[in-house]
C-alpha cells in the first residue's frame, strides 16, 4: 500500500500545488475582508466565478475576431487577466458599496444574510446572461497551453512514477506566485498597505490618524476581488469547463484554507491554501486505498469540510494566527 501511495505521490504533489495555488489566492480575498470588517464575504466565491466567465467570454471573443491567432497566446492571456481583474475589482467595490456599507453598524447576522443574497444574485445573473447568449450555461473555453510536460521523478528513485503537467499549470503557478509576492509587498511595504493594516487593527483609531477608512475598505475589496477574478481566468484556462455554480464549493474550500492559516493573516492564507490543495488531492488519490475501498474519491469534499471543523474546534485561531480574547 505504501509503495502505491509513494508511486503516485509526485503527481499528487503537482496537482495539489496547482489546486492549492487557486485556493490560496481566493483565500486571500476572504482573509483580507475578514481582517478589516470581520465579515465572511460569501460573495467572494461568486466573484471568482464571474472572473472565470468574463475571462472565457473575452477569450472566445478574441478567437472569433482572430486576435488570438495573431498575437502570442501568453500576451493574450496577460491582457485578459488584466482586464478581468480590473472589472471584478470594481465589481467587488460596488458590492461593498451597495450591500455591505449600509449595514456596517447592524448586527453581524444581517450583514451575513446580505452577503448570501449577493452570492445567489450573482450566480443567477451569470447563469442567465450566459444562457441567454449561448443557450447553455456550461461554458468551455478555447483550449490553450495544452502542451504536456513530465518531470522525471522516476530517475531519482524507482519508487516514484513520473509527474505530468500542462503548460497552463506552470503559468498558473507562476502567476499566483507573482500575485502573492506583489500583495505581500503592497501590504507590508507601501503606505496604503500600512493604512490597511491599521484599519484592520482598529478602525476607529485609524480614522483618528487621518486614514480614510471607507477608501481603505473599498481598496481592500478591489484588491481581493481583482485577485479572485484573475484566479478565475487561470482556473478556466487550467480546467477548461466552467459553470455558474463552481464559485460556491470552491469558495467554501478557500474559506477553509483561510481558517486553516488563521483568518486575517495573509501569509497564513497562502500556506493554508497550498496545504488544503495538497491534502485534498492526496485524499482524492488515496482515500480508496487507505480505507480499503469503503470511502472513495467522492468523499474528498467531506474530507475538506472535516478539516475545517477539526481546525475550528481545536485551534480556532488557525495554524498561524494569534488567539484573540474578546473585549467587552
Amino acid at each position: 500500500m505504501l509503495a502505491e501511495i509513494l508511486q503516485s505521490l509526485p503527481q499528487v504533489l503537482v496537482d495539489g500545488i496547482a489546486l492549492g495555488a487557486i485556493y490560496a489566492v481566493i483565500a486571500l480575498g476572504y482573509t483580507m475582508v475578514y481582517g478589516i470588517l470581520e465579515l465572511i464575504n460569501f460573495a467572494h466565491g461568486e466573484i471568482f466565478m464571474t472572473g472565470a466567465f468574463i475571462g472565457v467570454a473575452m477569450l472566445i471573443l478574441m478567437t472569433g475576431m482572430g486576435w488570438l491567432a495573431a498575437m502570442p497566446a501568453i500576451l493574450a492571456l496577460i491582457l485578459v487577466l488584466v482586464v478581468t481583474s480590473i472589472l471584478t475589482g470594481f465589481m467587488g467595490v460596488g458590492i461593498e458599496r451597495m450591500a455591505y456599507r449600509p449595514l456596517r453598524n447592524s448586527p453581524k447576522l444581517i450583514t451575513l444574510i446580505s452577503a448570501i443574497g449577493v452570492s445567489f444574485l450573482l450566480q443567477d445573473l451569470v447563469r442567465f446572461i450566459t444562457e441567454y447568449k449561448r443557450g447553455n450555461y456550461i461554458l468551455t473555453g478555447p483550449s490553450m497551453f495544452n502542451e504536456q510536460f513530465s518531470i522525471k521523478f522516476s530517475s531519482i528513485s524507482s519508487s516514484f512514477s513520473d509527474a505530468f503537467f500542462k503548460t497552463s499549470t506552470m503559468i498558473l503557478i507562476i502567476a499566483v506566485v507573482i500575485m502573492m509576492i506583489g500583495l505581500d509587498f503592497f501590504v507590508n511595504k507601501t503606505k496604503w498597505g500600512m493604512a490597511m493594516r491599521a484599519v484592520a487593527q482598529d478602525r476607529e483609531t485609524a480614522s483618528l490618524m487621518s486614514i480614510n477608512v471607507n477608501k481603505v475598505i473599498s481598496l481592500t475589496f478591489f484588491i481581493g476581488s481583482a485577485l479572485g477574478g484573475a484566479t478565475g481566468v487561470l482556473f478556466a484556462v487550467q480546467y477548461g469547463t466552467i459553470d455558474p455554480y463552481i464559485g460556491f464549493i470552491l469558495g467554501l474550500k478557500a474559506f477553509t484554507a483561510a481558517v486553516l492559516g488563521g483568518i486575517g493573516n495573509i501569509r497564513g492564507a497562502m500556506a493554508g491554501g497550498l496545504m488544503l490543495g495538497i491534502l485534498e488531492m492526496f485524499a482524492a488519490a488515496n482515500l480508496q486505498l487507505l480505507t480499503g475501498g469503503i470511502f472513495g474519491a467522492e468523499y474528498k469534499d467531506v474530507f475538506a469540510f472535516a478539516i475545517l471543523i477539526v481546525v475550528l474546534i481545536f485551534k480556532p485561531e488557525g495554524l498561524f494566527g494569534k488567539a484573540v480574547t474578546e473585549k467587552v
Partner: peptide, 12 residues
C-alpha cells in the same frame, strides 16, 4: 436564486 438573493439583500 435571483429572486431569493434580491429578497435577502433588500430585506437585510
Amino acid at each position: 436564486r435571483f429572486i431569493f438573493g434580491a429578497i435577502l439583500i433588500i430585506f437585510a
